[in-house]
Amino acid sequence: MASALKVQEREVVVPGEILAEGMEYLPSYGTYRLGDAIRAAQLGLVRVDGKVIKLIPLAGRYVPKRDDVVIGKVVNILMSGWMLDINCAYSAVLSVKEATSRFIEKGADLTRILALGDYAVTRIVNVTTQKLVDVSMRAPGLWKLAGGRDFSVNTHKVPRIIGKQGSMVKMIKDATGCKITVGQNGLVWIDGDPEMENIAVEAIRLIEDQSHIQGLTERVHAFLKNKTKKDIVIPKMQ
């Protein structure tokens, strides 16, 4: 039987749907082979790369991965560290050693560094097979968050919110003057003028809703220009 692709590039497919028939194509992430056909194993957008078919998920909760930068909330204080809620099925542990380069005496009050309910930007350093997650704050750009507000977005839209080399988030930052940090786990932190914060949140929601449709950057640009009444340039990244 001749091999044939049954769907188009960037089409929304649902679990069980036949993506291709015949042995010419290879199943990759989010797909599986059943007999002659390659089928979708979850809801997503089709990506065909030569002979390889994969899916880009459209929904689903965050799965912790090494080297991801995530925003976490302190939910418990342990013997020598903190337990962070990182907006997924598993909580993360931040040890004192990974939190600060200063010397912390044994038995010191850890709430002086991070108290219950505090938010911090951290990087995942290790994930075990049983999904025990270790995070660190010892790198540039990782810090405790103060002030501002946070909200959660679909974790699969984070790459689109950040854009190529950070172009999308830079455009929102430039337009609204807000400080913005986007965690891979779908938590976004924003700090700035309240009016401008609202515009930034709306812009991010727009990206979240429409990222599967072509021409996103132009729409976000038009939206920001209209709302802020400022002349905004689309950042050029090399």
Binding site: P15, G16, R39, A41, L43, A59
Partner: peptide, 9 residues
């Protein structure tokens, strides 16, 4: 499926 859970069908 809407929740993005991996499922065969």
């Amino acid at each position: 499926a809407d929740a993005g859970i991996a499922m065969k069908d």
